[in-house]
Each structure stands twice: as C-alpha cells, then as structure tokens.
C-alpha cells in the first residue's frame, strides 16, 4: 500500500469526477449494494432516532400525558394554550434578545481577533489554542464558574466594579432581569468568540495575500484594510457563522439551566423568567411539570421558529442572486467545510 504517499497537491489537482460503479456485474439495484450499505447507517439511525421522534412528537402534542398515566387525546388544545401562554412568548422573546446581544458582539469581536491574528505575528498557534479552548470546555463546569464570578454577594465582577467605582457600585447580575440576560450572553460570547475567530481566520487566509500586500504598499490603514477588503470578502463565511449561531442560539439551554437552576422555582429562568429560553421552557414543562403533551407542542413551535429563522438568514445574506434554498445550503456549507477539510489534511503531513 503506497497510496498515502502519492497525494496530489491540492492546488494543482484536476477536477475530480465521481466514478460510476462497475457496470459489468449484476443488474438492477443489487449492483450497488455496497454503496447503499455504506450510507445506510446514517439513514437508519436518522429514521429511528431523528425522524421518528419528530413525527411522534406531533402525536404527543395532540394529547395530555404525564408519561405515566394514560394518554388523553385533546386535539389542538395544547397549541391554543401555547398561543395564549405569556411564559412561552416570554421565552421566545428572551431567546431572541439573548441571541441578539450575544451574537452581534461575538461575531464582531471574532472578526477583529481573526484579523489581528492574520497579521504576521509570532506565537500564532498558541493564540489560536488559547482562543479556541473555551469552546471545548464543558458548559456545566463553566456555568458554575461564571455563577460565582457574577454572584451578587461575593462575585469577582462586583468586587471589580466596587474597586473602580466605589462601594455602592455593583450589579445584581443574577437577580436583575437584564443582568441575567447579559450574564448568559457573556457566557455565550466567551465560549464561541474563539471558535468563530478561527473560522474567520481560515476564511481570511483563503483571500489572496497579494491583495493585502498591495494595499499595504499603498499605505492603507489597518482599519481601511479591515473594512474595505476583509469584511466584504468574508461575506459567505460570515453568513455561515450567523446561521450556526442562530441554530445554537435558538437551542440555548445549559447556560441558563445551570446558572439559574438553584433559584426558588427551578428551571423557570430566575427573576421575571428573564433567563427562560425556549428549550429550557420545553424542559421545564416536560420534565418538571411532566406535561409531555405541552412540552411536545413547544418543541414544534421551536421547530417552526428555526425554519423561519433559517429562511430569513438565507434571504438576507444571499440576497436576490440565489434564493433557492436547495442550492444555497450545500454551496455555503461546502465552502466552509472544504476549507476546514483542506486545512485538516495539511495538518497531518
């Protein structure tokens, strides 16, 4: 086996075209049995553990059921209840607000970091690891740490404020409704800024260096390079990060659950339910109240929201040019993953 020593350089590789399966043997679909078999595990697992639960959740959402007693069919009652449930709408609002106040600063900071790291500086790989590490750490542990940093009574954040602004200063981070949202957003920002920065960095490095060099020679300022070259050329990569942040933001759970789980009524997101996200509310209804029917209705509402957001994102960023969902998604994701894949391949040499 000498196959692995003959890698073709990526830059000069000819366009690969898939090879048709050997035509000489059996007829019909049987001919392709190894191919179907090889992709089967994903589809089987998805049908059983992905598609079936989603369909089944429709069934459950038409019932009243606590998981132990008998299931009672209630038609659309859960949904009509949902529409008038102020807590549900609050959870939608909270999720949206936390998403906004975390995603916008996060992506901006990530872009700046990527841009700075892209300069010709030393210790680049150390910086990359340092920025990426928050993303690989368990959120349970870190929520506990953040809980103590932002504690009203003994937290580091407040003693820092008091040190700067006098002993009257201090924010009730975990009891004030806005404090709760900001603290959760800070955790999200802390965790995902480095991740997005690394993605942007990969995107940056795909931009021809000649462009930068000529700009430098022309004496363009750093800010000008950033705003006139970097950002416009990164547009597709930015879209990718917006979409992943949206999906992540809509399913926010661990941070508020661990941060506020010990308050009076658990899993309702603290004061004014300010930290109650949609997934947390779903969890609360299903596994604190044991209202499985309603929990399923909430998850369907979430599903609709995710779909709407995904569509809006595509429309916004891709504009008029290509608005067919089916075309945009693959090209978008592939642009990103190809870059990652190429990079990963390099790293093994």
């Amino acid at each position: 086996m000498t196959a692995h020593t003959t890698g073709v350089p990526l830059r000069s590789k000819p366009r690969n075209t898939p090879i048709a399966a050997s035509k000489t043997r059996k007829n019909g679909f049987l001919r392709w049995w190894p191919h179907y078999l090889s992709i089967a595990p994903f589809y089987v697992l998805f049908l059983v553990f992905g598609a079936f639960p989603i369909v089944f959740s429709i069934v459950i959402s038409f019932t009243s059921w606590d998981g132990m007693g008998k299931m009672t069919f209630v038609g659309l009652d859960q949904y009509s209840y949902l529409l008038g449930d102020s807590l549900f709408w609050q959870s939608v609002w909270n999720t949206f607000i936390i998403w906004v106040i975390s995603t916008i600063p996060m992506l901006f900071i990530a872009l700046v970091i990527a841009f700075l790291l892209h300069q010709n500086i030393r210790m680049k790989s150390f910086y990359r690891v340092a920025f990426f590490i928050p993303n690989v750490t368990s959120m349970v542990a870190m929520a506990i740490v953040f809980g103590s940093v932002f504690s009203d009574q003994f937290g580091l954040a407040n003693s820092f404020l008091k040190w700067i602004a006098g002993s009257d200063a201090g924010v009730q981070w975990l009891t004030n409704p806005w404090g709760i949202k900001v603290t959760i957003a800070i955790m999200v920002i802390w965790r995902f800024t480095g991740y997005n920065a690394i993605i942007y960095l990969a995107g940056l490095q795909a931009i021809s260096t000649e462009l930068y060099d000529s700009a430098r020679v022309d004496g363009a300022s750093t800010w000008r390079i950033f705003s006139r070259i970097t950002v416009p050329l990164l547009r597709p990569v930015i879209l990718f990060t917006v979409i992943t942040s949206t999906i992540g933001g809509l399913s926010l759970f661990t941070e508020p659950q661990v941060l506020l789980g010990n308050t009076g009524v658990p899993n309702l997101g603290g004061t004014n339910s300010a930290g109650l996200t949609i997934v947390l509310y779903q969890y609360y209804q299903a596994f604190n109240n044991f209202d499985f029917g309603y929990g399923s209705a909430i998850s369907w509402a979430l599903f609709v929201l995710v779909a709407v957001f995904a569509l809006i994102n595509w429309r916004l960023v891709m504009g008029r040019r290509e608005d067919q969902l089916g075309q945009v998604a693959p090209s978008l994701i592939s642009r990103f993953t190809a870059r990652r894949a190429a990079a990963t391949k390099e790293s093994t040499r």
Binding site: V48, F52, I60, I247, S251, Q282, A286, S299, L302
Partner: peptide, 14 residues
C-alpha cells in the same frame, strides 16, 4: 439543520 434538543420528549419515550 435540525437542532438536537428538538425532540426531547419523544426521544425519551422511544
């Protein structure tokens, strides 16, 4: 694009 936390209840029942 389907978030994993979507089907908590039915997955548990399954």
């Amino acid at each position: 694009l389907i978030p994993a936390s979507l089907s908590l209840v039915p997955s548990f029942v399954l």
